[in-house]
Amino acid sequence: MQIRFQLNGKPVTVDVPPHELLSELLRDRLGLTGTHVGCDTSQCGACVVHVDGRSVKSCTTLAAALEGATVTSIEGLADGAALHPMQQAFHEKHGLQCGFCTPGMIMSSVEFAKNNPDPTPEAVRHWLEGNFCRCTGYQNIVSSVQAGAAAMHAQRKGA
């Protein structure tokens, strides 16, 4: 079946089999391999992307259901060569090690930060319930999200 949706700011028209997952569509057919798959029980969050501005697990989202939707994956977050403030924060606060959970972690955090300009560590930790990291012990991820949230809102004010 054919679907049309916005992907990282551009219209996409693509034929999808009904059983195809958004993660499969992005990774296997659209070449956007920044979205990762780390589990098969919809828990790890490595596959998180935004659909209509909300974070969802692309491994549990049927591509067929995306007609008319707006999808943003990690590849669509930066503004050209300029990193998104959340990406920059993960870099500056050493919020990643192996990098596998990072795209989902960042996408999840961006949704959180939109509504939380100055989050406590506890609030960040609670939000990240759906994102596993095996390397960092989460500590620097928490700092990254706090810094990224502050930077996002500073940027918005400055703009």
Binding site: R27, D28, L32, G34, L83, L96, G99, P103
Partner: peptide, 21 residues
């Protein structure tokens, strides 16, 4: 020193085995 490898990971440009076609 901030990590050199970060840029590709935070932008989704890592190259893991499952990404290979």
């Amino acid at each position: 020193l901030l990590r050199k490898e970060d840029l590709r990971f935070v932008t989704g440009r890592g190259n893991y085995v499952a990404d290979i076609q």
